[in-house]
Simulated scan of single mutants.
Amino acid sequence: MSPDIRAAARRIGSVVVAPNCLRGYATSVEVADALAVGVRRALPHASVTVLPLADGGDGTLSVLHEVLGGRLMPVTAQDAAGRAQRISWLALDSRTAVVETASICGLGGTSPRNLRPLAASSAGVGTVIAHAIANGAKTVLLALGGTAVVDGGAGALHALGARFLDSAGKRVVPVPSTLREAALIDLAPARRLLDGVTLRLLPDVRPSLAENLAFFGTQKGMTEQDRPIAAGALSQLVGLLAAAGDEAAPARFRSGWFGAGGGIGFGLAAAATAEAKPGAEALLDMVDRTGAVRSADLAVTAEGKVDESTWRGKLPGTIASRRAADGLRTGVVAIRFAGRSPDPLIAHHPVADPPPTSPLTGAALWSGLADAAARSCTPFAEVMPS
């Protein structure tokens, strides 16, 4: 053991390991287990709390099921491309449901070359919400990150009964490529279905729907030729919702957090009572019952890629920023880094250096995570309080 690590072992009394999943690589439980191995190797005398987490994106439902219990409820719903699939929502109790959009119309499991954002629909989300309501849910926690859609929630509204009609009164199936054909929206059927239901939106990123395409369009398969079509569709949707009596739609279009998940929460808020709380903060409040993330001498967190969005609501950025505000240090582990936090209390540790040219899996990923976690303990030896 190096002198630096020996010093850290003496000075760091507590460590919390609190990662996100690595989408397409490993669940947050798997990531947390690997990171904890590295931390314990580097700091054998430290008290280590292992806290797999999520931020409203992939893995949110499984984290809440693991910590809070509840019953998984299977249902058939379409994915972003309209294919039928069997997924589950979580009944936390008889009146509270958790629905994860990433498991319904998400990016996971879809090859980037197969993404079709102008034809992708959030209809499956509406189907699952309707199933939860039919089973007694009055509060729906809607995890909004990691989707492959940019339809502003039009598909979800349609599946909940909203009617999209053209100028001749014919029904329009609303996806970005067809929304320009819609002349009006009848929200009444969806509002009746959602009457008395509260949607608690758990967005994973801060940008508004107006900013969404600039930040996340490429991730969802958007080309430069697609952008004006998608932007026009969203603008059309805002106007149609306003004309249908949703007077808050224009302001909500520019409001932070409503851009998450391709704007699914934006559309649903037109027909239901909806409240938005950053997903990472909500998950921390629900899962970190002892306050370990706020109090541990060192936190080690992780996600697949650290970029600008990390500091705009994602779990590692939320954890690191919260702790930095209290003068506490955080090690951030990732497969790739595209930009870094300027805060000296936040250190960055790649799983492999240089970054891998092909996906890391199995033992190589496990070893890389553990090694990065061990390295994350070293820089703090000189500055941790005795």
Rank of each mutant, 00 (worst) to 15 (best):
V15K: 06
A159F: 07
D226P: 06
R200Q: 14
A18D: 12
G261H: 10
L268Y: 01
L328V: 08
L160P: 03
I87F: 13
H65C: 06
L160T: 05
V99L: 02
G152Y: 04
L199R: 14
K220I: 01
A84Q: 13
A156C: 00
V383C: 11
L360G: 10
A251V: 07
E211A: 10
A347P: 07
A130E: 07
D33V: 08
R192C: 05
G169K: 11
S2V: 04
V48E: 14
A242W: 00
L64W: 12
H158T: 05
T60W: 12
E100T: 12
V15A: 09
L268C: 04
F337W: 08
V306L: 02
A231N: 05
R289H: 11
A271V: 09
P379I: 05
V238Y: 02
L184M: 11
R252D: 12
A81G: 13
P44V: 01
H349P: 02
S376L: 05
A276P: 13
D166W: 10
R191W: 03
A231W: 00
L199H: 07
V175N: 05
L284A: 11
V99A: 04
G108S: 14
I104T: 03
G196K: 07
I346A: 06
I185H: 05
S376A: 15
D58T: 09
G196W: 04
D297M: 14
G313Y: 02
V140W: 08
L107N: 15
T378N: 09
R116P: 00
H348S: 08
T318M: 00
A271M: 01
V15T: 06
T223D: 13
Q85Y: 04
A370C: 10
